[in-house]
Design a protein around this nucleic acid. Structure first.
Lengths: 345, 345
DNA sequence: TTGTACGCGTTATCAA
DNA sequence: TTGATAACGCGTACAA
């Protein structure tokens, strides 16, 4: 690794001149010297030492991307197509802007914050944070932060969030399900916080509007840990028979449920209608193709990164950026089954 | 951000002492001072500046993970469940070893190498490289490199590769397909290089061993770009009718093909048998559940990272680490259809 | 237009 | 056991 100092020595000039050429400072170095230096630079394939540069300028050109993993889901966090699509969008945007991306996954908010301060990152994108994290984060850290899909009361005062109209998206889907003639509609998820809560709320609103009463038991809770999921699905499939439609909180769960139902001889949509949320390849590749709520996940990542870049530049942005959803009607929601026909084979 | 210098000043001692406490140097600082400094450190929540540390030590604690994107696949590289699972395994291993992960995606090998030299990364994990890249990389770069799934002749001399017995895995699957009674078996992929070539070779070997002749037309080429895939699938589905089984190079393609066939009224496995390769959630969640060749992708990432960490420590490792595959028999390969029954509905 | 010299925060060397 | 100081590579204010 050749240094500026070394180049200056070999060319018999000062480091300032070399540095000026590197940084293309106009009118501060003669044409002749510029040519000589540039040529040399190209020849030896000069690459600056980022650490030295960062140290001198007190900036890092690094954007930290921290994923907070939930204990009960960790094993497959990054396998979730949602997460990978998101990262794809972020990475692309960061890279095109000349920044670098440092990826960090942890269950521990403290560790995440320590990590980003160590690296003196210029900005931070957070995913998977819950309400209480927001407070701890914002008091510790003064650089720009953009959250993705965070619903929090305290947090929003301090930093920007890129999210989705989860409530409305689900509301519209459930309204559509009701319009197909369904009255017994369950909701399936693994928790009732953040995004899941918003979607649950939308589901309840549609129910209420149609004069359908929501009972606690209509919430089907799936336990995604690998040692629990089979038992969990077994129970859900049993309880599913009481409903004619199930609104799933994600495509992943919708597809998981459909497979489990199919394995038990219950056919979708003849026996029961299923709706998802996300619109990723899991649902679009499945047959019957999944009726779902579309969101543009890659765009979510892109917008989050773009917003952060703006904040780094010192521009102001909205505190809440909400991306739209769209109903994608495919084949898994039809009219309710007749009496007790589940499609058993 | 408080610095060592500042701490030393406030505590009225030298930076050396503070630094020694931070680094827990045995017997180099008195019990009393150690206590005082440690207390102060905790109180002000000291976080070291990595740039300064790296500059002083000439190491970065960064491991670069570079994904070389293929032009014709780029749009969904990171969406591929394979890639995200791989990254998950790498990230976890790197993090647990106290290293950091910098993710970089590019189509341009030159850019990738420039990126890693800039950051002075301690080691490099490469994925998606082809033969000719290997040469360019190895001449430019002297730090440890681990490749994943790279088949190259020149490259292997210079750095370690973590791969799979792709040839054998496919061979065994096709042998199994043949044992089910099939004789007209196609192979589907989007290229004939690297991993795909190895799998194609395994397929051909099984065919040959069974006395089945391979013809060029038995290679079904899918074009995965979004503006071509529909036409591509249309043609493949038409040609598929000439076969009783299709060996797909990946689960993604297997599932994509099954959906396309299903949409045209051709049933799997009644009309045609389909096998995949990878064993990811796409195939296991699909119904009928995909018969496929298992590989442990997360482990691939873990092993790659572990190997790189060893190399960084100066230990020797094998130049080629080959992970095993395993046949996963599920529901998409059965005996061949009778005459011309495709399961049209 | 060019060069000198210092600061960035840390670690390491060596003397006290 | 502690402290002063050089070194890491780069950017830049200021002097020449």
């Amino acid at each position: 690794m050749i240094t500026i100092k070394e180049i200056a020595k070999q060319l018999n000039m000062s480091t300032t001149t070399v540095s000026n050429v590197i940084h293309d400072k106009e009118g501060e170095v003669s044409k002749e010297k510029r040519r000589i230096v540039q040529e040399f630079l190209d020849r030896v394939d000069y690459v600056p030492n980022i650490n030295a540069r960062n140290l001198a300028q007190n900036e890092s050109k690094i954007i930290g991307v921290a994923l907070k993993a939930r204990a009960d889901k960790y094993e497959n966090l990054i396998m979730d197509p949602f997460v990978s699509e998101l990262i794809g969008g972020i990475e692309e945007t960061i890279r095109n802007a000349g920044y670098f991306m440092m990826l960090y996954i942890s269950r521990d908010t403290e560790k995440i914050m320590r990590h980003v301060s160590t690296w003196n990152v210029d900005g931070l994108i957070l995913f998977g944070m819950l309400d209480d994290d927001g407070i701890r984060v914002s008091t510790k850290y003064k650089k720009p932060i953009v959250c993705i899909d965070t619903y929090s009361i305290e947090g929003l005062k301090h930093f920007t969030n890129v999210g989705l109209d989860d409530e409305k998206g689900t509301y519209e889907m459930v309204k559509y399900i009701i319009s197909c003639g369904h009255e017994k509609i369950a909701f399936m998820s693994d928790n009732t916080k953040g995004v899941d809560l918003a979607r649950l709320t939308g589901y309840k609103r549609a129910l209420k509007e149609a004069g359908i009463e929501f009972k606690e038991e209509d919430f089907l809770k799936i336990r995604p840990k690998s040692d629990e999921i089979d038992a969990s699905l077994e129970e859900i499939c049993r309880r599913a028979l009481d409903y004619t439609a199930i609104m799933c909180v994600s495509d992943l769960y919708a597809v998981t449920l459909m497979s489990a139902l199919q394995d038990r001889g219950i056919r979708v949509p003849e026996g029961i209608s299923i709706a998802g949320f996300d619109d990723n390849m899991l649902g679009s590749l499945y047959r019957p193709a999944l009726t779902t709520v579309h969101q543009d996940v890659k765009k979510k990542g892109v917008v989050a990164a773009q917003t952060l870049l703006k904040l780094i530049k010192g521009e102001k942005t909205d505190h809440q950026i909400t991306l739209p959803t769209r109903l994608v009607v495919r084949d898994t929601v039809t009219k309710p089954r007749k009496s007790s026909f589940y499609g058993f084979r």
